[in-house]
């Protein structure tokens, strides 16, 4: 079933939509949720929540890329879950490490961004990711968007762990410089 047909099911309020979406994108969403949380059970829960959120938001929303849409929701739900678990001193996965890495770009201590600041940051991140090379973008997104382990990225791309870490470090530095130039830091 292609995405248009799938979205059609959501619009017709046909409950097969959730099942089909689960079949088509559930695995991918699960892998990201698992990377975020480190726990299979928590990840499964988050994927289910994400699918329900998709059910609630489509319609009126009509995502251009259903897979990415579901992935974003899953990532958000999983991240919220991660924060909840962190408060209870539980939780694993790569999230804490990735956040720590990102603190090289934007410190962890700052106050949460206002809506306007956040929108600017989002635009700047998008613009930055368009500027960097495909390899930098791929590795950065594998790490920060999909929260893949360094060794997984290295294996997938045939690179050494050190090469991946070094590339990520350079990309973070570039991102920091870019955000500084844009007046966001």
């Amino acid at each position: 079933m292609n995405d248009d047909e799938l979205i059609g099911l959501f619009f017709e309020r046909d409950e097969r939509a959730v099942k089909e979406a689960q079949l088509k994108y559930g695995g991918y969403c699960f892998s990201v949720a698992k990377n975020v949380l480190g726990s299979r059970e928590d990840a499964e829960e988050c994927v289910s929540s994400a699918l329900l959120k998709a059910w609630d938001t489509i319609p009126p929303k009509r995502p251009e890329k259903l897979g990415l849409y579901l992935l974003r929701i899953t990532r958000n739900v999983s991240f919220n879950r991660f924060k909840e678990l962190s408060r209870k001193k539980r939780g694993g996965g790569e999230t804490a490490l990735v956040l720590d890495e990102l603190s090289e770009v934007v410190p962890a201590q700052g106050d949460a961004a206002s809506e306007a600041e956040y929108n600017e940051l989002k635009n700047a991140v998008n613009a930055f990711l368009r500027r960097v090379s495909q390899r930098e973008r791929r590795v950065f997104l594998d790490r920060v968007f999909e929260l893949k382990q360094i060794k997984t990225i290295a294996a997938e791309l045939g690179m050494s762990d050190n090469a991946v870490m070094s590339l990520l470090s350079r990309t973070r530095k570039k991102l920091r410089q870019y955000l500084e130039r844009e007046g966001l830091l």
Partner: peptide, 22 residues
Amino acid sequence: MNNEDLFRAVGEADDSVLNSTK
């Protein structure tokens, strides 16, 4: 602004940016 904002912002990267790596 803090690192969590950045984490979320990356999560909302445009489809075209995300798709270009796949």
